[in-house]
Design a binder for these strands. Structure first.
Length: 720
DNA sequence: CGTATATATCTTTTT
DNA sequence: GATATATACG
């Protein structure tokens, strides 16, 4: 047994029977407790590895736990049922898919596919997609799924005001279409598990018997459906240990119920609660600042972090600085990074944590021009790129013909003369016959079918023949990367980009090569690869190279660094405007927890900053410092920067008097650009140089040197 | 049916 | 600043 555990940790490890809630503050050795506990259970023979279920939220956490566990107990670790909620749900569903009317090779849809599908459905129902964005509808449906509500369980009175009550029928159609195309979305991976368990008691019992011990990481982030799932599985043996920290609950927007952790002792009678409050990570000042901040939240379980015994708690105060604008913020951050590096902190011990994704760009640019190596975690995703999605779509159809979304994506890419008209007919046929688009295509190319015109029919047949040829490779014993290569070249997809003279074509081809490389190194089968694509995000693979990490606060949960930069602490940015506008007290408290998570990522140094002016959506905004700054206890802070002092009141009187001049100018909408009038010489991205002949509002009539006179919106040209 | 160009819209956080 | 849609033309 690990002899380095403190008494509370030991108790959390050795209290194996019954329900246990471990309240584990930031940096209190949560992961060590979880792995030690698993090792303890297995090596003492309380259960075999495969009788233990350990669930996490991120693949990163699961991987880390698995690695540490195999370090203690060796290869047996791989037999533990360890993974994210979604992955374990998937594992169960693959095994019993037939009972739910799916085949076990069902596809998993990502957000993008979900929106596409819903959009198709809404358009078919003549719903105005402009007024009712599919994304918003999807949010409602996801919300139901997160609550464990299948179509038949949604209370009828909850949705009357939205879309004239049509939304429930949209949910039904959406589910039907998923089933028809043998696909599941993320929510289904848990929800359908619940349905499986409900309808087939024998299967539920099998798993209940199997899982003698259940461990749950980040319990504060579980939603209702996950909670129900856990409770069902734990029912037989009752040995469930949940580890969490209510102060780090930051996923309510994804359905997380902080109530799950707050009412744990009511859900699981005789539950024991163990508190881990000794922090092994951060200095006194950092903990003091974080604790002072989180104390402003109500409804906490209450927990105060202290520097663990034997740890050196001394250190620098948390630095708070105000600057003039985003550029200055970035350049100061670069300077401080260089200072840190010189004083011995490697780049990979430095992180920049931002509130929202687009903030990363500013720092990326700054790091590039300073020549400092960096990585963006979870930013623009490799698998989100157009060419990668296309390639994946080809593989998806190969793996599962009924995957309509994937098929429609590539059926005319590259162009094969299968245009909108043909595709409409295909979809209509599929809908009428309750079959997939692929099957519909098979019907429509038969000799006797006359639905399609001759040319369209011929083109479709050529496509289908090509696909059969590709499919025949699947049977041959061929490795995944070779298959992908064949598919991409024989389908003409690679040629499409090779022949393209678009400026980005070269980059796209390189990405496709990289994809094939990834396949070659990591995946034997196409199926394994597709599963990876749908379940693993870029947040999960972080390199250990000596690079500064840039990521959102959400992505940073569970990580730690020596030095942490927290830029953009302004009202409207952080706390986020939408939290201020819509969510009331609850949302504000979640933002505060997010701030708490940010500060507690740091071992030694925290640099918080705010800017008086910032460009957002291409427009200048002036902001006031975040309200959270005034909630940080001053004794743990030190101020610096071109704007000294961080008292909110002082800033408010300061900001308006020095507002940026061009933010109030009304004659041009594009910031800082000079107004273009008759006679100006201008440059256009495509048309090159020209002279303005006349202007009308912001429409300009321009005589271009190469192509003659055109009418162009003023936004698209620059004065030269 | 395909191509090229013009405009709108977006940006919270993610398995 | 990238991407989806709309529109016009060939």
């Amino acid at each position: 047994m690990d002899i380095d555990l403190n008494p509370e940790q030991t108790k959390a490890v050795e209290t194996t029977e019954g329900a246990v809630l471990v309240l584990s503050g930031a940096g209190t050795g949560k992961t060590r407790v979880l792995t030690s506990r698993l090792a303890y259970i297995i090596s003492n023979g309380l259960a075999a590895p495969w009788e233990c279920l350990a669930v996490t939220f991120t693949n990163r956490a699961a991987t880390e736990m698995g690695e540490r566990l195999s370090g203690i107990i060796g290869p047996a670790a791989s037999q533990v049922w360890l993974g994210t909620f979604h992955r374990i749900g998937l594992r169960i569903l693959r095994r019993h898919a037939e009972l739910l009317g799916y085949t076990s090779n069902f596809t998993i849809l990502g957000q993008d596919d979900q929106e596409r599908l819903l959009k198709q459905i809404m358009e078919a129902e003549n719903i105005d997609v402009k007024k009712n964005p599919p994304r918003a509808v999807l949010e409602v449906i996801q919300g139901w799924k997160d609550k464990g509500l299948s179509v038949s369980m949604v209370p009828t009175n909850t949705h009357e005001d939205f879309l004239n009550g049509k939304i429930l029928s949209l949910y039904r159609t959406y589910q039907d279409r998923l089933k028809n195309t043998n696909a599941m979305d993320f929510g289904d991976l848990l929800l359908l598990c619940l349905e499986l368990f409900k309808a087939h008691k024998d299967i539920l019992e099998k798993y209940q018997n199997q899982f003698r011990y259940i461990l749950v990481d980040e319990y504060q982030d579980t939603n209702v459906s996950q909670y129900l799932w856990l409770r069902l599985l734990a029912q037989k043996h009752g040995n469930i240990c949940c580890v969490g920290d209510d102060d780090q609950s930051i996923y309510s927007w994804r359905g997380a119920e902080i109530g799950n952790i707050l009412k744990f002792d009511r859900d699981f009678p005789n539950a024991q609660i163990i508190r881990l409050e000794s922090n092994y990570r951060s200095t006194e000042h950092i903990l003091g600042a974080a604790s002072g901040l989180i104390r402003h939240n109500e409804g906490r379980l209450g927990k105060d972090l202290k520097v663990a015994e034997g740890q050196d708690g001394s250190g620098d105060k948390v630095s708070v600085s105000g600057v003039w604008d985003g550029r200055e913020e970035a350049s100061r951050l670069i300077e401080q990074t260089e200072t840190e590096k010189r004083s011995g902190t490697p780049y990979n011990e430095i992180a920049v944590l931002v509130r929202v994704g687009f903030q990363t760009r500013e720092f990326e640019e700054a790091f590039i021009s300073a020549g400092i190596p960096y990585q963006v975690i979870g930013g623009a995703k490799f698998y989100d790129r157009e060419e990668i999605r296309d390639a994946v779509a080809y593989l998806r159809v190969l793996a599962q013909q009924n995957d309509d979304l994937a098929l429609l994506r590539i059926i005319n890419k590259p162009r094969r003369g299968i245009g909108d008209a043909t595709i409409q007919i295909l979809q209509q046929t599929a809908l009428n016959e309750h079959i997939s688009v692929f099957s519909a295509a098979r019907l429509l190319i038969r000799e006797e079918s006359t639905v399609l015109k001759t040319a369209a029919k011929k083109n479709l047949r050529i496509f289908m023949d090509m696909f059969s040829r590709l499919e025949s490779y699947m049977d041959a014993d061929i490795d995944a990367s070779d298959l992908a290569e064949k598919v991409l070249s024989e389908s003409g997809y690679l040629a499409m980009w090779k022949e393209s003279n678009a400026p980005e074509a070269q980059g796209r081809l390189e990405n496709l090569q990289e994809l094939i490389g990834v396949l070659r190194e990591n995946f034997k089968s196409i199926h394994a690869f597709l599963e990876h694509v749908s379940l693993v995000s870029d947040v999960d693979d972080m390199s250990n190279d000596d690079k500064v990490s840039i990521m959102t606060l959400h992505a940073a949960k569970g990580l730690e660094f020596n030095t942490v930069f927290l830029p953009g602490w302004e009202d409207g940015i952080f706390p986020h405007q939408r939290a201020l506008d819509e969510g009331g007290q609850r949302a504000l408290e979640e933002e505060r927890r997010l701030a708490y998570v940010g500060i507690t990522r740091a071992r030694k140094k925290v640099f918080i900053s705010f800017a008086a002016n910032r460009r957002v959506y291409n427009q200048w905004q002036n902001n006031i410092p975040s309200r959270f700054l005034s909630e940080l206890p001053p004794e743990h802070l030190t101020g610096e920067g071109s704007i000294v002092g961080f008292k909110r009141q002082r800033q408010e009187s300061f900001t308006p008097s020095r507002s940026i001049p061009w933010s109030s100018s009304s004659h041009t909408q594009s910031s800082g650009k000079q107004q273009i009038r008759k006679g100006f010489r201008v440059y256009h991205n495509r048309f090159g140089y020209g002279v303005v002949l006349s202007s009308e509002g912001n429409r300009l009539k321009i005589a271009f040197e190469d192509i003659g006179v055109k009418t162009i919106m003023a936004d698209f040209v620059e004065a030269v």
